[in-house]
Design a protein around this nucleic acid. Sequence first.
DNA 1: TTGAAAGCGCTACCAG
DNA 2: CTGGTAGCGCTTTCAA
Lengths: 336, 336
Amino acid sequence: MNLEEVARRAGVSTATVSRVLNNLDVVRSATRSKVLKAVAELNYHPNLHARTLAGGKSHTIGMIASNMENPFFFDIFRSLEAEALRNGYEVVVSNTDYDPERLVRSVRLMIGRRVAGLAMVVSEMDESLVDELAAAGIPCVFYDVGAPREHISNIRVNYRAAIESLVKMLHTQGHRRFAFIGHHSALGPTSERERAFTKSMVKLGSGVEWRTVADRDGLEGGLQAARQLLNSGFRPTAIVCVNDFTAVGALRALREHGLNVPGDVSITGFDNILLSEYCDPPLTTADIPRADIGRLAFEALAPAGDRQPAPGREIVIEPRILVRGSTGAAYSRRKP
Amino acid sequence: MNLEEVARRAGVSTATVSRVLNNLDVVRSATRSKVLKAVAELNYHPNLHARTLAGGKSHTIGMIASNMENPFFFDIFRSLEAEALRNGYEVVVSNTDYDPERLVRSVRLMIGRRVAGLAMVVSEMDESLVDELAAAGIPCVFYDVGAPREHISNIRVNYRAAIESLVKMLHTQGHRRFAFIGHHSALGPTSERERAFTKSMVKLGSGVEWRTVADRDGLEGGLQAARQLLNSGFRPTAIVCVNDFTAVGALRALREHGLNVPGDVSITGFDNILLSEYCDPPLTTADIPRADIGRLAFEALAPAGDRQPAPGREIVIEPRILVRGSTGAAYSRRKP
DNA sequence: TTGAAAGCGCTACCAG
DNA sequence: CTGGTAGCGCTTTCAA
């Protein structure tokens, strides 16, 4: 089933059918009707590959994420997609599960698809991959993983400030034994968050004890990391988690050990995913405005109004601290 | 950047480059090297659209889901993708958010992409859309939404049996006031689960009171539905939820009302998503083997070994009940 | 306002 | 084992 069959049935040329299908309003209304009738009767659906090939432009935006299972990434996808659809683009996602090989695979796939733009929401990144992307001439926007280059936009979050606020608050509440639960990831946000944590600890000086531990991203990773932490004998009164998803996992480990939150241990998340309000207790966290990020990412790739993609901009996002039930004064356990 | 440039640089024909890129082992090893060298030097990435168009086959499988935010769907996607990748296919997903219009859009998009197969993991379904798909000649597999036709495979879950088991267990534990929390959805699993619940209630006879309530799928929907239920004045001692995701939302409403689970109220989920073990208390639920579903779906679409897609099969899955901490004897609240 | 025809980048078939 | 070439289904000039 192709244009030609439709054209034949409508008694016009393929060019005309194409024009109708693309809403080029040069077509006489009577002709248009004939064509649409034929299209409907034949249950015709244009071949998008042929269209892309002939048209020379893709109309799809790619997004590569490290862990679509983590609602944080899904939220970004959702806002990016909404913005894209509104502007006549599709978006196709690819998940790497923090696997460098899958990252390479995904990037190549996106290049092969000749996507109109690519949002990289990943923690791992290889310099040579960025080269590849640049050589392919695909507009890119990186979230959180540094790729400071010409023509490449970066969206970054000011973790430092947020983690510092969180730590300062906990310290003020009397906490002196801290722990950081991270997740494995070569570079980027995690290590940046961890570094931010470490720096904050150092800044607090000798009055505090602390350690860090890490496992995979996610519920299970948080659980394992927290178990490992608790089994080590070290007993923090405050745990700073790399993100909410991990924190929810850690919460389970705390319950297993009979520790009350925030009575025995305070815990913080990061991101402000919906789930952070549904766990018990709800998490004190730092809100990252995912809706904005999706929108900004799209604008950096294919701005509305057919402007050229914005040249390499640097967008910094300031998280907002949200204090909820998972944190409180040190040693505040209410006796039963 | 195209085949021709690569061919020129390697001093061979485009046909040969194509053969190398497709691993047709008829190429002399020396020639192959030359080609690969040129490919690398030029940072060449084949245009997948051209490939699909010329080759006449797509090598990508589509999946349309109602709510990718619900981990249940993501789990199915993950297993489907794993199986697909293993067999040389890509998979591209589309999310409908239970919106019939987005469903139509998604289906058309998949047809336009000429996907090699399509997994429909949706609750809403329009008969005419199934026609469209059939006319387009795309192998399809439907999860849970009846589309009994020639050449179309269906994977369904025996909700009836599972819900009945759950209800029977609760009844045996002394529960007499039940509630069902569902989610809006035109047809399919929800209504089937709800019907299953209703039937079970009727079967229990006049000794029980019950009612049903519904909101959107998800954390927020579960919360709202449960609030609505509790504010109605009816006080069930057992709540059966349409799925785990919703149940976690309901749990929050129960906490808000100062109700202890399972002391005051028992609650059950469905699906056995990972989160069901991370909430407090962990949910009694019915396990649906998502990994199997993804695999079965793939096999129904593009069986390994180049066999033709299996002709319309009907696969029934029997959930397994998992009893965890969210259920217990009626009126068993331990006094503080 | 419409049609004819030249590609878009690749595969696959037929020769050699 | 390799090259030439006819499409795949569509868009887009260029003419009419």
